[in-house]
Write a protein that binds this DNA or RNA. Structure first.
Length: 421
RNA sequence: GUGGGUGUAGCUCAGGUGGUUAGAGCGCAAGGUUGUGGCCCUUGAGGUCGGGGGUUCAAGUCCCCUCACUCACCCCA
């Protein structure tokens, strides 16, 4: 039987991997400039961690986790998202001290057992960041500005930042009740999903795509109007700060996030280029989660961005060239025997160099050199061996010079350095 | 989990109403240049036609099942 990749996972092949590297390095650079430090956490945790943080009733926990038992009978799960693990690690290592802020970022694969679709995989890569220890609205604006800058540097355009506030433990339950009351009167015009949601996740009804449901919820009570004084002030400050920084955004009162832990500010960065997977990055504030997981009360905010989705938006013309290598073309056994040492010496000097291992003709070696974008080809055949030289061809100008074998490594190092490569 | 579409060479795809050795372009390889890349030309390698079963003298083509991919729903990065 032919073995193949598991459904919903994919290989990132060499032709494409530059996109991941590019996104990762740009993200790292920006996040570190913003004062974030990387944390690497396990890809699996006790199932209970996810159940308690993401929420028992959510689809992610109910049916999308890869859960298994280890040999001791403990229930473990592959992480479906990163925040829970980061919070757990911070609590574990007592890193959340009172009156101090910590900024962390992570990157790596996440796992969800969903039906695969464009921009949606069962193993997918996220980059995420979290700020612990402050509910200062400036921080909310700061991470949004960070995302804004990141997208700018990646050359991604055509995305929209939407923000909303879901309120805190004071005002959110009040709103939820009011909304439920409203929805109960509208049951007749809601779809079956939304009727079900009314009880468990009423806010989600606002985000339903069905025209009938949209229509029915036109006059639903507004989240923003029901925010308590503090939450209102907080949201106003977030918006004001974004305005001040010139970070464009839209307020979307119907923006609801799927994870239970969000409070106050929530946001998504949307694109219209990925079909129905329109969120490239998303996140929000989660002021109650740390305490809920057994840490001291610590306000926090974070986001995650989907690398596959971001990669799909990268402009094709993005510059991802690497240093042009040297190519050594040996002709004949005697020349080939010289290769291992020569290559080693060149590489020890940090010179990118490759060669042919198959004893191919010069013509086909030249083709290969061209394919890999070699700046120079060093030809070593019988004539050159007799003269003690290597014929160095500049692939662009086609100029060829004889370089003594003796000082070849020094000479080529100088030549390449001279070109300011 | 539900529904639609699609599976033919490494990639993108042709293959009226079943008919004998299954094709093209790109890519790959060799040659055209006694040792010189890109362009051009020639030749070549590469296919269990997703898999299994059925109908038929005969199936890439028709039927059933299955798997995968894909799009939408659900949900989400």
């Amino acid at each position: 039987m032919k073995i193949s990749a598991v459904r919903g996972v994919k290989d990132i092949l060499p032709e494409e991997v530059w996109k991941w590297q590019f996104i990762e390095s740009a993200s790292r650079r920006i996040m570190e400039n913003f004062g974030f430090s990387e944390i690497r956490i396990p890809v699996f945790e006790y199932t209970e961690l996810f159940a308690r943080s993401i929420g028992q009733g959510t689809d992610i926990v109910e049916k999308e986790m890869y859960t298994f038992q280890d040999s001791k009978g403990e229930s473990l799960s592959l992480r479906p998202e990163g925040t829970a693990g980061v919070v757990r690690a911070c609590i574990d290592h007592h890193r959340l001290q009172p009156d101090s802020v910590s900024k962390l970022y992570y990157t790596g694969p996440m796992f969800r057992h969903e039906r695969p679709q464009k921009g949606r995989y069962r193993q997918f890569y996220q980059i995420g960041a979290e700020v612990f220890g402050t509910d200062n609205p400036w921080v909310d604006a700061e991470i949004l500005s960070m995302l804004h800058l990141l997208f700018e540097q990646l050359g991604i355009s055509g995305t929209v930042l939407q923000i909303n506030s879901l309120g805190c433990t004071e005002c959110r339950p009040v709103y939820r009740k009011a909304l439920q009351k409203f929805l109960r009167n509208e049951q007749a015009s809601l779809c079956t999903d939304c009727r079900r949601r009314t009880a468990g996740n009423p806010l989600r009804v606002l985000d339903c795509k069905r025209p009938d449901c949209k229509e029915a919820t036109q006059s639903a009570p507004s989240v923003l109007a029901s925010l308590c004084r503090d939450c209102m002030a907080h949201f106003e400050m977030v918006k004001g700060t974004l305005d001040l920084m010139g970070v464009p955004y839209e307020v979307n009162e119907r923006l609801v996030r799927g994870l239970d832990y969000y409070t106050r500010t929530t946001f998504e960065i949307l694109t219209d280029q990925l079909g129905s997977q329109n969120a490239v990055a998303a996140g929000g504030r989660y002021d109650g989660l740390v305490e809920q997981l057994g840490g001291r009360p610590t306000p926090a905010i974070g986001f995650a961005l989907g690398m596959e989705r971001l990669a799909a938006l990268l402009p094709e013309e993005t510059n991802h060239s690497r240093a042009k290598p040297l190519y050594l073309a040996p002709l004949g056994d005697a020349a080939m025997e010289r290769m291992p040492l020569l290559l080693h010496q060149l590489r020890a000097r940090g010179i990118p160099v490759d060669t042919d291992y198959l004893g191919k003709s010069l013509k086909s070696q030249m083709r290969q050199a061209d394919r890999i974008g070699a700046a120079y080809v060093g030809i070593l055949g019988e004539d050159e061996l007799n003269d003690g030289v290597i014929l160095l061809r500049n692939m662009e100008t086609k100029a060829q010079t004889k370089v003594p074998l003796e000082g070849f490594v020094d000479q080529i190092a100088e030549t390449l350095a001279g070109e300011g490569a």
